[in-house]
Design a protein around this nucleic acid. Structure first.
Lengths: 229, 229
DNA sequence: GACGATTTAGACAAGAGTGTCTAAATTTGT
DNA sequence: ACAAATTTAGACACTCTTGTCTAAATCGTC
């Protein structure tokens, strides 16, 4: 590292790129093989890097694993909050808007590479690293659920929904939207776009049957018109 | 084994008991450590058996793993069908009866030892043994979901519910009943009785808001009476 | 108590993986 | 093109695990 000059940015340029490709490859291998089954030779090969470089960057296997989980958590959080920002606060067609939101949440946060990997690592190794996953819990669900619940609360306050407990409603919303994807998730598969849309559509319809306002005359007219179009 | 007599029952008595204790211990260790991380010495120690006995019974690690999954699948299926048999076909108080059913399903099939273990093994190692888990899918979800859906269809036919698609309704029922337990399941934890009851209660209420018949005058009277009691 | 079958403890070879080290090759900034 | 830092390949010691083997101990049954 440079003698006495700007010691804060020691790694030049390709350095950081290699760090990323290592973490990326490691994520894939840890997910496929589990922590114990993952081997550093395979990770380095998949990252296109020598084994020694992996050790230079991350010290040992356990530290590498931690880095993977932290990276995934952070990237997933960014995606989730970006998606929450698209929540329909002033809905035009509430049903269509909520279906769109549910589909975006699935495609951008749950079914994408990062989401799948993070979920699997939590399920697989969660019990082995209590502090690490406690941190995930605070940073992840602990911040995203209230954010989603707040959006539903606003929708209720605006008169678009009839909700007792926004927290419960938020969890039930996702439970319904993903009701038909559970078996696929369980086996680590990725549902097709159609499957996501189908599940979200059925889920949102049920959600609105339970929490939607009884259709006012005008909206009935509108829906009927659409159905006949 | 006995010279020329009844060659079908070679293992005497304690033999089968040991086989069971090995499979039991193996289930626990495979779940905690993953397939690669599980070690036969630990399994044999936990089963109270010598390592050689494990090999005598199951040949090798992979065959042992298969035996574990098959055993768990079979035991879980028994539990699930036993619980489905308690589905309220002629409900008195529909809400209470469905909550009871949801709680039983959780406690006897999903949150119990076998259910937890099987779920974790499927999530963790499902991709590594496609045929094995294809078998599970047919024997498990492939048979239980239609059975549950049929019960909801009967309830709808009997005029207790308004359902378009019984298969969708069945999946949404479980999705709602477990909506509040997802984070706990994800980390491999076991929800408390209270948490199960709470989630089931909220889930069933929402389910009935969506699919229940509008309360008839008599049932309103009844519920009001109960509420005031 | 005696017999056959099962289980046990321990040693063993073979293989795989981690983490370290070194010297040579390569990349990077100037 | 130079100098410093980084990366690389390969060898290495060490540990752990699997699966086999053997001889002694134990169990169940007659």
């Amino acid at each position: 590292m440079r003698p006495g000059f700007s010691p804060d940015i020691f790694p030049p340029r390709g350095h950081e790129a290699k760090r990323l490709s290592i973490v990326d490859a490691a994520a894939g291998v840890f997910c496929r093989e589990g922590f114990a089954g993952a081997n550093i030779d395979l990770i380095s090969a998949e990252a296109g890097v020598s084994r020694q470089t992996v050790y230079n960057h991350h010290g040992d296997k356990e530290k590498l694993f931690m880095a993977v989980v932290r990276d995934l958590t952070e990237r997933c959080n960014v995606g989730i909050f970006a998606t929450i920002a698209t929540f329909p606060d002033q809905p035009g067609d509430l049903e269509a808007d909520l279906i769109g939101f549910a589909v975006r949440l699935n495609q951008n946060c749950i079914c994408n590479r990062d989401g799948k990997f993070l979920r699997k690592l939590i399920q697989t190794e969660g019990e082995r690293y209590p502090e690490l996953f406690a941190e995930w819990r605070e940073q992840g669900p602990g911040r995203t659920w209230p954010a989603i619940a707040a959006r539903f609360a606003r929708l209720a306050y605006g008169g678009h929904l009839t909700i007792d407990d926004p927290d419960v409603a938020a969890r039930q919303f996702l439970g319904l939207a993903n009701a038909e994807l559970q078996t696929i998730f369980m086996l680590g598969g990725t549902p097709s776009e159609d499957e996501v849309l189908q599940s979200a559509t059925n889920g949102v319809r049920t959600f609105l049957r339970a929490f939607g306002k009884r259709p006012s005359p005008s909206s009935v007219k509108k829906h009927t018109a659409l159905a006949n179009a």
